[in-house]
Structures are given as C-alpha cells and as structure tokens.
Design a protein around this nucleic acid. Structure first.
Lengths: 103, 103
DNA sequence: CATCTATTTGGCTAAATAGCCAAATAGATG
DNA sequence: CATCTATTTGGCTATTTAGCCAAATAGATG
C-alpha cells in the first residue's frame, strides 16, 4: 500500500495486476457466465481453497469482483460487464508480435 | 516459460502482466504519443537504464512493443493501436469498487 | 447450544520479480 | 582501427507474490 495517494498508473496497474495471473484470469473468465461460489472456482483452478480465497480477495480489493454471502456459500461475481471488451483488447495486444496472423 | 504450449489464459496473462507494473504502464502510456528511445523512457520513470531496458524487453517479448535501431538509439513503439481502448476498459474495471462514482 | 460447513486469515517457505551495479555488445564516429 | 555512446546482459540482493497447511471465523442446522 502506498503511503500517499496512488498515481493514475499505480491505480491502473493494480487492476491490471489483479487479472495478470493465469488462475485469477481463468476465474474471472468463468464469472462472465454468472456468479460462482468459492468451492466451484476451487474446482476450476484446482488449487487449495485458501489460495483461491486469497486470489478472489485480491480481485475484490482491486474492484474487479463483488461478493455476497447467501446460505453457506459466498458467491463472487464480476463488478463490471467490461471484461469481455478487456479481453478483446488483450488478445489484440497479444498478437502484436505476430502481426501477420492477426491485428 | 512453460514446457508445453501455454493455455489461452496463460498467454493472455503474460500480456496483462507485462502492463501490470507502474513503470511499464507509464512507459506504454507515453508511447501512445509516438516512439521514444530508451533514454527518454529512462527519464520518464527515473530508474536505472538497465532496469528500464529489462522492462522494455519484457513488453517486447509479450508482443506489446516493437523496437527499431536508428543511429545510436533504439526506439520503442507500441505494436498495436489498442492500448487506449485497453485503458478505458481498465478504468471501468478500476471503479467496480465504487460504482456510485463511475461505471 | 453444539456442531458442521464454507470461507478467511495467519504463518511459513518457495518461487518469481524488481532493481542496481558492472561488464559486454553493437554500431557510429573520429 | 580506436574510441565513444546507447543499450543489453549477467549477476547479485531485496522485495513481492504464490501456495500450502493449520487455525480462526461466521453463519446454518440439528
């Protein structure tokens, strides 16, 4: 946590970093189809529950996810419907290296 | 580096990670106004030249940047014109946490 | 109220990343 | 060809991040 106010680039990079891990990204992608509880997401990525929980908290703190407790479970969901567009941008950036095949 | 072929999420997260560092992001943002040489970017972020060079190589390997040597300098530029759109998505995601003010 | 279940938190170790310095490189210039 | 300049690479240490286990928590249910 920065002592003083974060710069724009710092705030932005916190969000970007939150999505820049394969497991976190996979979970976020899965949430595009609707909310899921922690144990479902644990199944998806196959890590320890505590690891998954920490990944989810990190994304929630970055503002990317929301969560809500209902019954025994905690359901996580995307805070914003813009992940699809984000991924389209990423895929375009991803093929900057091989321009011939895409972009 | 993964031994076998990277999954989609792994490929995507490599690109995302490349932009998920304040200095790297600031440099990429600066390049939206056109190519710049390493020493200009060093001025911008204020780190050691070798650090800046490594950041730039990382982004180039991720496919985000291109570089070209002309005269004594090496000029880096964005490989894709989609960074602006990417940042708009990031800013939308960034304020998922405080929905009232944005999104 | 005791217990059970899903999740989070704390604590720790291992792995990845960042940053600096010094040395190497590649190309320009005298 | 010697040298100078911009950049990269190697090597190292410090910091951050990831992941697991065990313990704590919060709420549901008997």
């Amino acid at each position: 946590m920065p002592l003083l106010t974060a710069t724009t680039s710092e705030r932005r990079s916190a969000v970007i970093k939150a999505l820049g891990h394969p497991s976190r990204l996979r979970m976020a992608e899965a949430l595009m189809q609707g909310e899921q509880c922690v144990c479902d997401l644990k199944e998806l990525v196959g890590s320890d529950m505590s690891t998954v929980s920490k990944h989810l908290s990190l994304m929630r703190e970055a503002g990317v996810l929301n969560c809500e407790k209902r019954g025994l479970n905690i359901y996580y969901s995307l805070a914003c419907d813009c992940l699809g567009e984000f991924l389209r941008c990423v895929d375009k950036l991803a093929c900057g290296g091989n321009k011939n095949t895409c972009c």
